[in-house]
Nucleic acid binder design. Structure first.
Lengths: 205, 205
DNA sequence: TGTACATCAGTGAACGCGCGTTCACTGATGTAC
DNA sequence: TGTACATCAGTGAACGCGCGTTCACTGATGTAC
């Protein structure tokens, strides 16, 4: 952020970080290109040396977000150890952890209204995140008795949906007035009940 | 919408309907007060005879949305008939049905960034919707063996979260690329698995 | 039944604002000789 | 080691735009006598 003469040094990343700080404070709609430039100590026009425009800047933030997201889930999955079940649960928890630790990225990814197809790099990153999760679901799926095994993509979608819903409704200032329970607990127990319903957790534990 | 002279007749509701149409087409951010006025055949300034401003118009739409939402869920619940379980499931389905049939209301309620506390009427309407759902959960809760019965508010939150997640991720143009399954099916099966996990549905059915 | 008048829902012009974006430019940096 | 020059990351001023909002006004409506 510290300006050191005429040339900035690494304005591109500085702009991204300035935008992240603004999004965190005011949401993706409140953020403006001019503010980001200003807070990076630079004229709005300078932004155009590094990005095609406002949307391109947001898209790049979303892209970086999906990369981090995928990394985080992949790390939580840990190659399926110690068990497919534990690894899957950890992956689900990573969803909320990501939303907590990188709220601005999360907003750029899911609440900025950006299209994931506008930009091939963004699309690729989003797809990668999706695949990390799909793989965890696939591995877990092998442990369900074949007869009543739903498609892995389906229960991946269920868990994704519940995670997303918990974040949107209870881990932000939004509608649910105030969260009736800590979001982490809510997600933990929700996934637990769901997996029990799949027959993957003993009905007693 | 048809203009019939100097006085409009029922401009207030005409503006709301114009705004709904705009939100449906371009999202709550794309909608502007001027557009709404124009499409109701009226000057932007006329809006101020009926609303305190842009935010107040959106708040009123959200309020009407919560009223419809509560009515819909209440109707689906049907006094707990034919069984607590069936009524609860129907209430969950009503969530998605509402999002489908009243997409603009839904967006005003959950995606416009409006605060539910800014306006007492809005707050009251939102609270009413929450209570309809909480009551259904409470009734169902009685059928879970007391020992391992989670708080009703908790599994109400789980279902609410999953419903919201399904809508946001798979029932709109947004992130999930394209829905892997029809949202209705996704929600239906998701709730089914979850309720089985609670021991409310026989493990076989 | 007709007239005078109060009420109030609209008009139309204007405002200030901040946005994203463009343009010709200039100053700093790094490289070739 | 020093100089000339190409490159390019920034400036600063300006743009057009559309927004939400205000204001004094005017035309239509409805009511009292």
């Amino acid at each position: 952020m510290a300006k050191q003469g005429y040339h900035h040094g690494n304005l591109r990343q500085a702009l991204i970080e300035a935008a992240l700080a603004l999004i965190e404070r005011q949401g993706p709609q409140g953020f403006t290109l001019s503010d980001a430039a200003k807070s990076a100590g630079v004229t709005p026009a300078a932004v155009y040396r590094h990005f095609a425009g406002r949307d391109d800047l947001i898209a790049e933030i979303a892209r970086q977000g999906f990369e981090i997201f995928a990394d985080l889930m992949d790390h939580a999955y840990n190659g399926g150890r110690p068990s497919a079940l534990a690894a899957f649960e950890a992956t689900g928890r990573a969803y909320l952890a990501f939303a907590r630790r990188f709220p601005a990225h999360y907003q750029a990814m899911f609440e900025s209204g950006i299209s994931l197809n506008a930009n091939p790099d963004l699309h690729r990153a989003a797809e990668r995140a999706r695949l990390v999760f799909a793989r965890a679901a696939e591995a877990l799926s092998q442990h369900i008795p074949a007869g009543r095994r739903p498609p892995a993509a389906m229960f991946a979608a269920h868990i994704w949906a519940m995670s997303h819903g918990v974040v949107e409704l209870f881990a932000r200032g939004a509608p649910g007035a105030r969260a009736p329970f800590p979001p982490e607990e809510l997600l933990e127990t929700g996934i637990g009940v769901y997996l029990r319903g799949l027959g993957l957790v003993p009905p007693d534990s």
